Amino acid sequence: MNDSVAGNDRPEHSQGGTYTVEGQEFVRDQRYIPTRITRDAVDGFPVEPGRYRLVAARACPWANRSIIVRRLLGLEDVISLGTPGPTHDERSWTFDLDPDGRDPVLGIERLQEAYFARDPEYPRGITVPALVDTQDGAVVTNDFAQMTLDLSTEWAEFHRPGAPQLIPQDPTERAEMDAVMQEVYTEVNNGVYRCGFAGSQEAYDEAYARLFTALDRLEDQLSGRRFLMGERITEADVRLFTTLVRFDAVYHGHFKCNRNKLTEMPALWGYARDLFQTPGFGDTVDFGQIKEHYYRVHTDINPTGIVPAGPDLTGWTTAHGRESFGGDPWGGGTPPEPVSAR
């Protein structure tokens, strides 16, 4: 499962990640609940405003992408948001940020309760993000990759006016974006974890080389274009951003991804700041929760639980100069309204 897992059936436990060690290499468990919420309700779950609750911890990169997409598309009034705190125990993510430690809509203390409402013997990790049906309190799906694609396509009728087209309609461009997203996932999103949880020097060295080979390639590509697919934001940018925004704060030191910092890669640093300053991206990020999550939950890597004071994060709001590439981030649309309490 993703790195944001808690509880159950794990050969090894990290942070939350459920993974196996094959030749001392980190291998992510990618088994998810594949049910989808669609317009034709083929899986039994129809698109229905107000029915579903997105449970997504702000600390988690996989959950963060769902929060970003929900906000960019203007689905705040259509799909409610529940936010567990930044840490969890062996059993589950908990709603310790809410009054009385319970999600105010689902009425539960632990996300585990929603998984067990779906399957009382649910055998795998308790992951975020998860979409929960408020009618019975059961998880519908935790397939984070398909989830955001469906928010763009199946929920299109309920997008805000001016919402960006995060999924290209042209088949050729869509195929190109899918290939980019696959590389971003395997080499960068998951690459930092292969470094952090490598079980041997050899496995770490290989993971480290793969990660920075990919980052160097992206540095080169983004030296000549504003966004991954060209002149406008797509889902590919959302997926890369959630790793980049955590890079210096946690991955550089905590996961030993320390050839250089993001701030030392000019194109990637400018690109990341460009997105951070774009409504829907930086306003979903909580650096305090991110640091607390990684440094307190990963006791196998950081047994003292000490959360470092640095790095200095003020640079995220400095000028990036990426406007010189031209284009329109919104592809003819408009940015979302300021953040609401929803």
Rank of each mutant, 00 (worst) to 15 (best):
R160N: 12
P161T: 06
G162V: 09
G162M: 09
A163V: 09
A163M: 09
A163R: 03
A163E: 01
A163G: 08
A163I: 07
A163D: 00
P164E: 10
P164S: 13
Q165V: 14
Q165D: 04
Q165R: 12
Q165M: 13
L166T: 04
L166K: 02
I167F: 07
P168D: 09
Q169S: 14
Q169D: 14
D170Q: 05
D170N: 13
P171K: 05
T172R: 15
T172H: 14
E173N: 07
R174I: 10
R174W: 09
R174D: 14
A175N: 04
A175W: 08
E176K: 14
E176I: 11
E176T: 11
E176W: 06
D178F: 10
D178W: 01
D178G: 08
D178T: 12
D178K: 10
A179P: 03
A179I: 07
A179M: 11
V180S: 06
V180Y: 06
Q182F: 07
E183H: 13
E183V: 13
V184Q: 03
V184N: 10
V184P: 06
Y185R: 14
Y185Q: 05
Y185S: 09
T186E: 14
T186K: 11
T186Y: 10
T186F: 05
E187N: 14
E187R: 11
V188F: 05
N189Q: 14
N189K: 07
N189S: 15
N190L: 15
G191I: 03
G191W: 01
V192L: 06
Y193I: 09
G196E: 01
G196I: 02
G196S: 04
F197S: 01
A198S: 15
A198I: 06
S200E: 08
S200C: 07
S200D: 05
S200G: 03
S200L: 08
Q201H: 10
Q201E: 14
E202L: 11
E202H: 05
E202K: 10
A203V: 10
A203D: 07
A203I: 09
A203H: 04
Y204V: 07
D205K: 08
D205R: 09
A207H: 04
A207Y: 01
Y208C: 09
A209K: 13
R210S: 12
R210H: 13
R210V: 10
R210Q: 15
L211A: 08
F212E: 06
F212L: 11
T213C: 01
T213S: 12
T213N: 12
T213Y: 02
A214G: 04
L215R: 00
D216G: 05
D216Y: 02
R217G: 12
R217M: 10
R217T: 15
L218G: 01
E219H: 03
E219A: 09
D220G: 14
D220N: 12
Q221D: 13
Q221E: 14
Q221H: 13
Q221Y: 02
Q221A: 15
L222Y: 01
L222T: 04
L222C: 02
